[in-house]
Design a protein around this nucleic acid. Structure first.
Lengths: 189, 189
DNA sequence: GTCTTAAACTAACGTTTGTTAGTTTGTTAA
DNA sequence: TTAACAAACTAACAAACGTTAGTTTAAGAC
């Protein structure tokens, strides 16, 4: 961890390739070519292919867990907490669109850190669900199956990385506002 | 197309493997082992690895385009059309959970039929967007950016394949009803 | 009993894969 | 001028890849 600048370049370029074709379909020679060097040279900077994926995924997962842990502690309504979670996703997905693809699609190719990743994910979802359940208890949120609400919101947020590049005109805070409106209040008039 | 029973077995088993590890990480030997035969024997039934993926994806994509084309022609409110689209996704995702993973994650590995797939997808999204826009015009749907509404609903529907296996207790029609409630009317009380 | 056919097999192919070892190059510090 | 170091290189590796060719096996039809 705490990568050198050159290592970070490799990770950044690899992220872009992983986004387009997935981790398994991208070869070390692909990454090297995109860097303008030979495949063997990559190993001056990284341990192996797995390390690249691990860095991309774990650092993002930790960003999310840190973000939601902060939000849950705030003295706020549950609806406002949800709005902050939405903004958190928009923010991270905007800053690291490519990495989000690996987080969503390539986590199963982790080895050493797979269990750690899964723990982070379970914790994240549990915290999210708890906030929804509190909202139901406090009568801020409808009393529907909270798993369905969690699923619905989280699916949308996890797909942001696909849509953000197509909507470059829309700035982050406007996107977060509009998304909150749709996700929390629905589309029906 | 119109596969023999044995070919369909291969496709079904391959779908399950593709769901877990993605198309690129699954080898012909993996598929063969899951079938209880040798890799070379697969070629008595299929042309190559690509044909398996193509069948999985194209048949699903055609199911979706046929479904939405029927819904759009019906004499119905736009909200009811959206409810039918939600039920369509729940139905297909329930019947072919594994295939949906490839449709979502492995379409970029298509070769011969990639352009055809992309056409189907664009057509599907266009029809979906048109229904939303009509709903706005007829004052059934809020006047928010229709792309955001499309994105939000479609992301959730496309992720159904992940959640359905975790919620085996919930039957399809109940899931569709609850999902319609959340997606159309929101969660805020 | 022979013929046909479906579906498996063994063996091998040429490529591509991730990775290692050892070497060269260019820059900076002493 | 030389020593040290980062970062590239060439060459090669064993393993795994998708796929082909030719062969065996078992069942049903004539």
């Amino acid at each position: 961890m705490n990568p050198t600048p050159r290592k970070l370049e490799i990770i950044t370029i690899a992220s872009a390739l992983f986004k387009d074709k997935g981790f398994s379909a991208v070869t070390m020679r692909d990454i090297a070519k995109a860097m303008g060097i030979k495949a063997a040279s990559l190993y001056n900077h990284i341990k192996n292919k797995e390390e690249i994926l691990t860095f991309i995924i774990i650092s993002l997962a930790e960003e999310f867990i840190n973000g939601i842990d902060e939000i849950k502690e705030e003295n706020n309504t549950c609806i406002d907490k949800l709005k902050k979670i939405i903004a958190l996703h928009v923010d991270i997905a905007t800053r690291n669109t490519n990495g989000m693809a690996s987080l969503n699609n390539d986590w199963m190719h982790l080895k050493d850190q797979l269990d750690y990743y899964l723990t982070l994910r379970v914790n994240y979802e549990d915290t999210f669900r708890t906030i929804i359940n509190e909202g139901i208890k406090k009568n801020e949120i409808k009393s529907i199956n909270s798993d369905i609400m969690l699923f619905s919101i989280l699916s949308t947020l996890r797909s942001l990385y696909i849509w953000i590049p197509q909507k470059e005109d829309m700035n982050s805070s406007l996107l977060a506002t509009n998304l909150s409106e749709v996700l929390l209040k629905g589309i029906n008039k």
